[in-house]
Every structure is written in structure tokens, then in C-alpha cells.
Design a protein around this nucleic acid. Structure first.
Lengths: 346, 346
DNA sequence: GTGAAAGCGCTAACAG
DNA sequence: CTGTTAGCGCTTTCAC
């Protein structure tokens, strides 16, 4: 393209310059068996001299690309940063390179990113809470190894890593109830993400919320508020709820980013400073003393590590599906306070 | 690998099944000139039937891969989320796919990620504040189009997009001085990131801080504190500084993530609530009312968009280097307060 | 231990 | 308008 564009050296260039065959060079760079020390030395010198690096895509036409692809929705949600951190750490000592295809949270749904990655010859796919049909994933997994993070689908063709959302919500709700709360609202995503039986974390969290409310005799206080996924959306939804006259004593947001949006909305309204707020995930921002958000910790780093391990196992030949469940942990902080006087329920 | 592994359909499969040549299929999928309507129809039906998708890497061996690679350090820093958002938006209507190679902020330095991307045949490279030698980048840019975001290097082979750090720091320092602050400390990264003349944003911010201090006659109050890049590091560095007895009236942190760590440290110490804090970038968290961090806004989304546009222009044939400077904007918030009584300086 | 040759899936140049 | 041919850079039998 550019006038003085420089072509990179090919295996052929190296072979010629070293006076050997391409096959020989190939063996050297792969550390394969059957090369004399003298030849190896000579070839390596030329590689150095020519600054030669094998083209992965060409290599991929014959075998592996040593590339793992990860589809990632909404990079703004810091829980995904935890996952990514765990994944890159797990990959540090491995010869694999991770590449990420970001998904526009508003528009596309994951199909596009997953397919784009597959078209680019990645050896394995990591799908993070993708909004895709499980059957589609199942089909896809017959062509390429897949590990999915963050859904409870039962699957035979791919592995899954997921948090125990029912247990997590259970702990959190118990905490709120013990603090004396009865009017507990739940802020969650739209139907699309929470359809019963869809296997998404948010559908389970919603169901667990409702179940707990019923169990403790608060069925009539069940209040579900919907919003669109981001901090700002949660902020607006909270203001809307407040404007409609609702006055819960506690709001359980389906994940921390939403909870933080709830907090910012409550801060704006002088009459609502008593409302307790809780989130889910325990992202970094939740831990900040000025935020102090009660949350349910999901071990994101560990989950990211598991995902990578499982994928690596698949690449090494495993064929039966593994489903890993990560254990959540309640982290109470200042954003949840006891209701005046009250203690416990039924 | 898996027993019942399914191979994906190739162009050959489609050609055979449709009773045409591979070249014909190729033309159809590229929308190239010279195919009869009837053939196009037949081929498209088979493509649908076989669920055929061209393998990008094979295609790349001949021409373009329609893939843009972005090296991204530290996904936890939300400023990069702003950039990414701008980039993906700009790419929405383009036929290019963006892939990201995450860089472990602790270990690698960007070389690895950039090379990994180039080895994988991306058509263009976006480097975000990479810690690499400008000469190396220059060399690399002779093989593949590059746009670098976040450094002030003068370059001939690649484009750059960067904020006007000197102007931004100027505004911020003026703001602090006008509030009556004289003991203003600067928290920044280690020497490696701030070496004078290295062209990194942090080296310019540091220099601009020192310059302003001198200009307003506060040279003797210059205090530079170093830390390691993350919120927690900033937190610890602040506690260390406090323990050493230093009592600035204001702390200017080199970016918002650091500033937020400073805030959390100050919150822990009862005697420091009067200290003003300011950051840089204006990330989402800075805007939260419970944080209320004074910051200098960098138009990250716009910068991300510019980066993509410039790269696309290069792919379209432009060969002269473009250097774009984004204009920063001061956003005062509650984290900076006037010093008792004082007003203005010299 | 070494190299020649075939082929991965695709595109581009040309011939029909 | 259509098909044949020749690679792109690499790996992998398989002879030597």
C-alpha cells in the first residue's frame, strides 16, 4: 500500500539464505525432531538476521493457530475485567495468545463476534454470557471447542463455568431480611435477559429473589423494576420508580454496575438516604469506601482461570462436557443498614 | 479432535454442490463483477444450505483480512473503555472486525501483543499508549499501517491521536491555584513512564505540573510521589506519603484511577478530609456523586473514533502521517475545595 | 538428517 | 459469463 512498504520475510527467504529447505526451517522454528545442531544454529542466525516470524494464519491453514478467542460483552462492566484478568494470568505460561472480540452491548448479540472469531481460525472459543441460542452454541461446538462463562445451560458439546446464583441471592436476601427489610425491590434487566428457564444468571437471580420473598412471607411486597443494563440506565430507572411513589426500604440490583447507578440516583434525592442498596459481583468500585456497596462476591479471576483451563483441556483432547460452579460469598458493607428497631422476620 | 468433529464447508464444497467453479463462488461471496443472476442465486442457495462462511485466514493469504487489531493495556482503567467504545461505534458501519490483544500491565510491554496481532494478519494496528520504542514502531509501520493513541512521539510512518496534556494540566493547576492551594503534590507513575522527552502523556503531565508550580512561584513546594499504576497502588502510595509526614493541601493524580485510590486512602485517615484531590481523564467513576472527582476530561470516545478513521484512511491509501490533538476540558467537582480564606496567588 | 512435493482454503489472472 | 491455473506461507508425509 505505502510506496516503500516492506514485505516481511517468509520461511522461503530464510531457507534460501541459510541454504536449506523450507521443511528444515519449519522444523527448527517448531523445535521438531530431526535437525542437526549445526543446521539449527545456522537457521536460527538467519531468522534473527531477517527478523523472521512465521505467519500464524498460514500456519493455521495446516494446523493450529495457538489463538484463543473470547467474545466479551460490555467492557465497561468491571466484572468482566476480573474475568479477563484471571484468563490472561492462566495463559501467561501457555503458548496461546488471547484475542478479544468486543460486542456492542446495544446492538449485536454475540453471534457476530463468535462467528468472526471462528472465521479467523481461533483454536478455541470463550463465550461470556452470550445472548445466543444454546442450540446454536451446541451446533457451533461441533466445529470448534467452546467454553461458556456465565450461563446455566445444560450442554453436551461445550463446557460451562458459572456462579451459583441461587445460593448467592439466597445469602443476600437473608442478609437484608435479617436487617429487618420487608419492602425489598429488585432491579434487573429486561425480559430478554431474564426469561424464566433461559439459563441466564439474571433469570436465576430474579427467580431466587421472588422465591425468597415468598418463603419469608413477603410475596405481596415483590417489586421488580426493569432497566437497560448500564449504570445510567439504572440511575434513570431508580428515579422513575421513586417518582411513581414506590418507597422500598432496600433495593437489590442484579449486578454492581446497576447498584452503583441506584446509589447515584438516591444521592440526588434528599428523602431517600435511608434506602439500603445491594449489588452482585463485588467489582472493584463496590469496595471503594465512598461507595461501600454490599455485594455478593463472584470469584471472577478464578472463573476466568477455569475457563481457560477447561478450554486447554479440550484442545488437549477431552470430549466430555464439564460444568463448573463457582461459590459466591456475601460481602456486607455500609450500603445496607438495619431497619430502625426491627430484627428478623418470621 | 472430538470424535464427531464436523468440518466446516469450504468454497470447494459449495462449488461442487452448485456445479460451478470455485472462482465463481468466490465472485459471488465478494459481490464481484461478472456473475449471472441465475448462477448467483444457485450459489447463494447452496451457501445457505451448507452454512458456508469463508475462512478469513485463507482469504488473508491472498489479500486483506478485514480485521483491525488493537493492543490494549490495563482493561481495568475505564478510560480505555471510553476509547474502545468510540472505536467500535466508528466501526459499526464498516466491514472491518476489531480484535483486541490484552496486555498484562505488569509484565509484557506491548511488543508481544502488537507482534502477535501482526502475525495474525490484521490489516491495521491500533496501539494504545504502548511502552515500546518509537523507532520500533516506526520500523513496524513499514510493514503494516499503525495508528498510535496516547503518545506525543513525532513520527513519519504512523499516525497519532493524543490529548493536549500540557493544556489540560494547565487548566487543572490554575483551578487549584485559584482555590488557594499552594502545597500541591503530584502522584504519578514510575520513571519508566515519565522519563522527560519520552513522549508519554505522563511525562508531559509531570513536566507541566512542575512548570506551573514554578511559574506561580511554588517551585519549593513541588512534591512528586510515585506509584505503580493501579488504584490500589495509589492508595498505598498515599498512605505512605501521609505516614512520612507530608501534608499537601491538594493532590493531583496523573489519572483518575489513581485519584480514586487517593480518595480511598484519604477516607481512611480522619485528619485528611480537607485535602483536595484531582485526577485526569474524567472516567465514569469520577462522575459518580459519591466520588465527585474533579478531573480533566479527555474525549475518549472521540479519540477512539479518530483512531479508527485514520487507520481506515491509511488502508484506503493515505501515506503521509497525521497527528491529531484532542482538546481537554476541566470538570470541577466536589473533590477540590477552596483553601480557607485564601484566593489567588501572586 | 535432509529435502522434494503435495496441499490447507482462498483469490486473481487469464483463457475460453 | 465461466472455468482453469497458479500461487499466498506454512506444515507434513515420504523418499532419499
Amino acid at each position: 500500500m505505502t510506496p516503500e512498504a516492506v514485505k516481511r520475510a517468509t520461511i522461503e527467504d530464510v531457507a534460501r539464505r541459510a541454504g536449506v529447505s523450507r521443511a528444515a526451517v519449519s522444523k527448527v522454528i517448531r523445535g521438531a525432531y530431526g535437525v542437526s545442531a549445526s543446521m539449527r544454529e545456522r537457521v536460527e542466525a538467519v531468522i534473527e538476521e531477517l527478523d523472521y516470524r512465521p505467519l500464524i494464519s498460514a500456519r493455521g491453514m495446516r494446523g493450529a493457530t495457538f489463538t484463543l478467542g473470547m467474545e466479551l460483552p460490555d467492557i465497561a462492566n468491571q466484572f468482566f475485567a476480573r474475568i479477563l484478568s484471571g484468563a490472561t494470568t492462566a495463559l501467561e505460561t501457555e503458548p496461546y495468545q488471547l484475542v478479544i472480540a468486543p460486542v456492542d452491548p446495544d446492538h449485536s448479540e454475540g453471534y457476530r463476534a463468535l462467528e468472526a472469531l471462528a472465521d479467523r481460525q481461533v483454536d478455541g472459543l470463550i463465550a461470556v454470557s452470550p445472548r445466543v441460542d444454546p442450540r446454536w452454541l451446541e451446533e457451533m461446538s461441533r466445529r470448534i471447542p467452546i467454553v461458556m462463562l456465565g450461563r446455566h445451560d445444560s450442554s453436551v458439546g461445550y463446557d460451562t463455568v458459572v456462579g451459583d446464583d441461587v445460593a448467592g441471592v439466597g445469602m443476600l436476601m437473608q442478609h437484608l431480611v435479617e436487617l429487618g427489610h420487608r419492602e425489598i425491590a429488585h432491579l434487573t434487566l429486561d425480559d430478554h435477559h431474564t426469561r424464566p428457564g433461559s439459563g441466564t444468571p439474571h433469570s436465576l437471580r430474579l427467580a431466587a429473589y421472588e422465591a425468597t420473598m415468598r418463603e419469608v412471607g413477603l410475596a405481596s411486597s415483590i417489586q421488580v423494576v426493569r432497566c437497560d443494563g448500564g449504570e445510567d440506565d439504572a440511575h434513570r430507572a431508580t428515579l422513575r420508580m421513586l417518582a411513581s411513589g414506590a418507597r422500598p426500604t432496600a433495593i437489590f440490583a442484579a449486578h454492581d454496575e446497576l447498584a452503583i447507578g441506584v446509589l447515584s440516583a438516591l444521592t440526588q434525592r434528599p428523602d431517600t438516604s435511608e434506602i439500603s442498596v445491594a449489588g452482585y459481583d463485588n467489582i472493584k468500585q463496590a469496595r471503594h469506601p465512598l461507595i461501600g456497596l454490599t455485594s455478593v462476591d463472584q470469584p471472577g479471576e478464578q472463573m476466568g482461570g477455569s475457563v481457560v483451563s477447561l478450554l486447554l483441556e479440550r484442545l488437549a483432547g477431552r470430549t466430555d462436557a464439564v460444568h463448573e460452579v463457582a461459590v459466591p460469598r456475601l460481602v456486607p458493607r455500609s450500603s445496607t443498614r438495619p431497619i430502625s428497631g426491627a430484627r428478623g422476620v418470621t
